[in-house]
Amino acid sequence: MLLLNFFRSSIGLKIIMALTGLALFGFTVGHMVGNLQIFLPKEHINAYAAFLQSQKELLWGVRIGLLVMVVLHIWAAIKLTAMNAAARPVGYNDPGKSATKATLASRTMIVSGVIVLIFIIFHILHFTVGSVQPQFYGLHDEAGRHDVYRMVIEGFRNPFISGFYVISVVLLGFHLSHGLSSMFRSVGLTSPAWRKPQELFAAAFSGIIVVGMAIVPIAIVIRLINPTF
């Protein structure tokens, strides 16, 4: 009963938001580091991809885990947003002005979140399922491995695709700039002394994610990485 109250309460739902958000952030950091292998010779990223694909149990464990995290994160977000919308049936004369000192990121989490979700679906269709640009998907390198290197580079040479990726990761960073500091407070792991460092952590890591993610499509579209196939 107490546990049920906890998960029904706004505080419990916020703790779910924070913990699932943390898990998704952790995955994002790993994903970013993996991506940066595009700057190395093609063997590296193709071998890395082949290694991940060879670990079927681990791969599906992580995929199912991430799916559960995403579903819980969205479920809690929907419940909380509905609760918040109902809490003020009659608004103010100038609602933008009334949320004193609230950052734009903190006021638009649901908007940045929805756009990031649309991006994630597109991204999975693009590079995991291969249905966005199927002409670059089924290719293999000399070693007979899935040619991830070529798929990514040919894909990002399209300025519309790379532009969409860059905009999406900027919004992801925007989402994280509030989410990463908010998460500490939601789980109660904060104090006045830790507040500033945690805000700095959020700002720094959202910046690192944006730069580390966006640098790949940018480097390819401006032909900084320009192999011939």
């Binding site: 029904r8 309460s9 706004s10 505080i11 739902l13 916020k14 909380l80 609760m83 918040n84 109902a86 809490a87 003020r88 949320a99 004193t100 000192k101 609230a102 950052t103 903190s106 006021r107 989490m109 509030h178 500091s181 908010s182 407070r185 939601s186």
Partner: peptide
């Protein structure tokens, strides 16, 4: 608090 129909905290610091 939950019974009164308030919203949740999204740490905006307003």
């Amino acid at each position: 608090m939950e019974k009164e129909g308030f919203g949740s905290c999204t740490n905006t610091n307003s």
